[in-house]
Design a protein around this nucleic acid. Sequence first.
DNA 1: TAAAGCTATCCGATGCTATCGGACAGCGCT
DNA 2: AGCGCTGTCCGATAGCATCGGATAGCTTTA
Lengths: 256, 256
Amino acid sequence: MARQDPATTQLKSVRTTFKIVEFLKRETAGSVSEISAHLELPKSTVHSHLATLNQLGYLVNDDGTYRLGYRFVHLGRTIEQSHELRQIVSPTIETLAEETGEQAYFAVEENGLATNVAVAEGENSIRRRFLPGGQARMTSTATGKAILAHLSPERVDEIVRRWGMPPEAPNTITDEDELYTELESIRTAGIAYGRGESIKGVLEIAMPILGDDGRPHGAVEIAGPIKRLDDEAYRETLVDEIETAVNEIEVNLSLR
Amino acid sequence: MARQDPATTQLKSVRTTFKIVEFLKRETAGSVSEISAHLELPKSTVHSHLATLNQLGYLVNDDGTYRLGYRFVHLGRTIEQSHELRQIVSPTIETLAEETGEQAYFAVEENGLATNVAVAEGENSIRRRFLPGGQARMTSTATGKAILAHLSPERVDEIVRRWGMPPEAPNTITDEDELYTELESIRTAGIAYGRGESIKGVLEIAMPILGDDGRPHGAVEIAGPIKRLDDEAYRETLVDEIETAVNEIEVNLSLR
DNA sequence: TAAAGCTATCCGATGCTATCGGACAGCGCT
DNA sequence: AGCGCTGTCCGATAGCATCGGATAGCTTTA
């Protein structure tokens, strides 16, 4: 008999607990019946999970409807604060957004996903706000591609196989060979662009932060509406600002 | 036979998962053996929990040492952002800290604990930083007492029984009768003070936000070193600022 | 006022599955 | 080269998560 799918084995109750947590994350709040209906779980099962989370202090019960509590907020904030790289990078990302007036990001690879570690808004920035911790496929974001370009081919392959390359926006790269040539040109140019590959109408410009050993720590990005960033002269000033930021971060990393 | 202790019944595996999560929250990172040793759990059990959390994307494995991932950060940030009361209150707390130069807080009651929903620092503020989501006993903080003063006696009793009143700092109230007279005077004065009851050397001044039905939504607080706030004239200006903030919040709540 | 149709919560039996000890392989240190 | 540590995997046991049903409390509707 074939081995069980590793994604479905192990600690099923823990898995359903997080299914419930993620449901409440999406829906903000919910009753036992609602959760039970949407997740197709028996009411009594849902209830016992909710009761446990409530006892642990992670869940609040307002007259029959449950919502996630501030204990999770504290958990997340603690993780953020104890992340050294974020501490180093944050001020630079803040000023980058301030100087350019656009959105600025710093992202790292985590579990094969491009993960926003620091996010900042400029005065002209588009309204869609990505929260810290937001994750996206590496293959469809500029930060992701900038990082991928400096990972080993085996690791890139592993990530692509794990998360696939489905179309997310008009220009998403969905072909593996196309991705590899794109990564090659990113490597030589030292800069990655995303033109409506993750979200329609958004242009992203990203450069990697490389360690002394050549391994990528993460990537700095500026994102804005494709129309405004269409002007080549403006785009060049943005690239300049990104280079300054990258330089600053690399210095701060070596001084650590 | 007596009923089982509700704190130890139900979903044991979920409970141990969160034990591990909270260990990693404290220690930033840890190996299987470390966690196994500190929590007195078999290595294989710890491993299967870690593997599950890793599969779910909440945990990152850096060469054998595990740490909590940015998925928890995103979870916490999402909860914060979808909390309406926090959205209303935050700007006021920010300006309160700015105007006074001290630390400013807004806290609510959650699971019987005073829970910081919004925190802000002024330029003179003490360095110890409370993160959003931080929780403390209601009986030892000014925000907690301000809220308790407007809850039903039964609810107060329930909370006190659940969390107890152990000494936390030199002046912590540890006697129930003393607490009740204190709450009575807070109710008539409309203001609560904490004088080194939670943390030595810190003075807290708090006022509740009350709904139309008289039930408390939360409390606004300013905290600072007892020495600086010892000056009565200065303290009065702070109380004035808090009153302004409370008024602003109550207006914004009624306009909702 | 009464009763129907919700709801959340509780209970008890079944059999799945979390647990646990042990075995293995890989690594860095001595 | 060998020792001692590590993380990971396996398999058997029984503990416990699951599930259906029963109950009680609430709001709505007649």
